[in-house]
Amino acid sequence: MTIEIRNISKSYGGERILRDIDLKINSGELVALLGPSGSGKTTLLRVIAGIEQADEGSGPVLFDDVDVSNVDLGKRRIGFVFQHYALFKHMNVFENIAFGLRAKPRRERPSEAQIREKTQSLLDLIQLGNLSQRYPSQLSGGQRQRVALARALAVEPRVLLLDEPFGALDATVRRELRRWLRRLHDTIHVTTIFVTHDQEEALEVSDRVAVMNAGRIEQYAPPQEVYEKPASPFVFKFLGNYNLFHGRTRGDEPGEALVRPHDIAIARDPNAAGASARPGVVTHIGFGGAVVKIELETEDKTHVDVEVSAPTFRDLNLKRGDKVWFALRNAQEYVPDFVI
């Protein structure tokens, strides 16, 4: 199912959370809403779900080109997975998943046998078939997450909406679960939107990323494009570590250049570093396994973070206090946006 929202705004008590948002999501796509807290991403998700209403004067929310802005949450046929799962504590896993099926009006409700079969197949899908009689308090975070997902899928939603789906889990489980979510999405192909503040998560899992800031979408593009061609300094800064160089643009306007630490070449020999190489002194070396983080200080006391691969670092054989040359390989230049 395609989703299209036009000109959506939302305010709480005079504070504008969403500002004229437009977004179009293709059928079967997996989209991440990425942004810092307070950027409006969860509110946007809740407006799409129908949990929150957009302000008066906002445009429509279209599901398959049909305006659903006035359709009640329960009738939109969406599957919503809450940040803290909102599993019903007094129901076991099986009953939680079967809830949506049992809650249907009598004439639409499947038979008990069908409910059991459907719930069992979902339990198999989330690989928790053996824990169907457990209560939510007896499950781990990752298991609860999967139960919440199965519960949302039971009613065969047209769109799956996930609010910080992995936010409350530890790093290992997060990584495992997001790959599982991607595989699951590739199996069932339901249009999916998920909210996250973790850029790695958004880039790894989604087909397209909408980077949000202060109630606006700054960029909406596939992960590679968002990472390699950030549309604004905000996107650049939000997506990873960076070095900021103040200078003048070609048109001699004051500007800034942003460079990823791994986009800086470093060498002991000025000619090997590349064109317009500058000198610096190594002030700190941080070993991070495959990547080594080197801090440099330039002559004008600017700190520069550089990341090199472990083999490169071995070849360089650097120590603190060594003098090196560095060159920017891939700098993004932005004329600062003075409008706030």
Binding site: D72, L73, G74, G79, F82, A86, F88, F99, G100, A152
Partner: peptide, 11 residues
């Protein structure tokens, strides 16, 4: 949130 969850499931 529990009520919202139940409502989103069509209850």
């Amino acid at each position: 949130e529990f009520e919202t969850a139940a409502r989103s499931l069509g209850a």
